Amino acid sequence: MLDSVVTVALTSALNSLSERQRAIANNIANINTPGYTAKRVMFEDALAASVKAGDGDVKATTLRSLEPTQLNGNNVNLDTETLSNVETTLRYQFAAQAVNGEFTSMRTALKTQ
Rank of each mutant, 00 (worst) to 15 (best):
M1C: 08
D3R: 05
S4F: 13
V5C: 00
V5I: 02
V6M: 06
L10P: 01
L10W: 00
A13H: 11
N15W: 00
S18C: 03
R20I: 04
Q21T: 02
Q21M: 09
A23W: 03
I24D: 06
N26Y: 10
N27S: 08
N27V: 02
I28F: 03
N30C: 01
G35W: 00
Y36T: 10
R40Q: 14
V41N: 04
V41M: 01
M42F: 12
E44K: 09
A46P: 03
S50W: 01
A53I: 01
D55L: 12
V58Q: 13
K59D: 11
A60M: 00
R64L: 14
R64P: 08
S65T: 11
L66D: 11
E67G: 09
P68Y: 09
P68C: 10
Q70V: 05
G73S: 04
N74M: 10
N75K: 09
L78D: 08
L78Y: 04
D79C: 10
T80A: 14
S84C: 10
N85P: 02
E87S: 15
T88N: 07
T89K: 10
R91N: 12
R91W: 06
Q93C: 07
V99R: 07
N100A: 14
N100P: 12
N100Y: 11
T104H: 15
T104Q: 12
S105V: 11
R107F: 03
A109L: 03
T112P: 08
T112H: 12
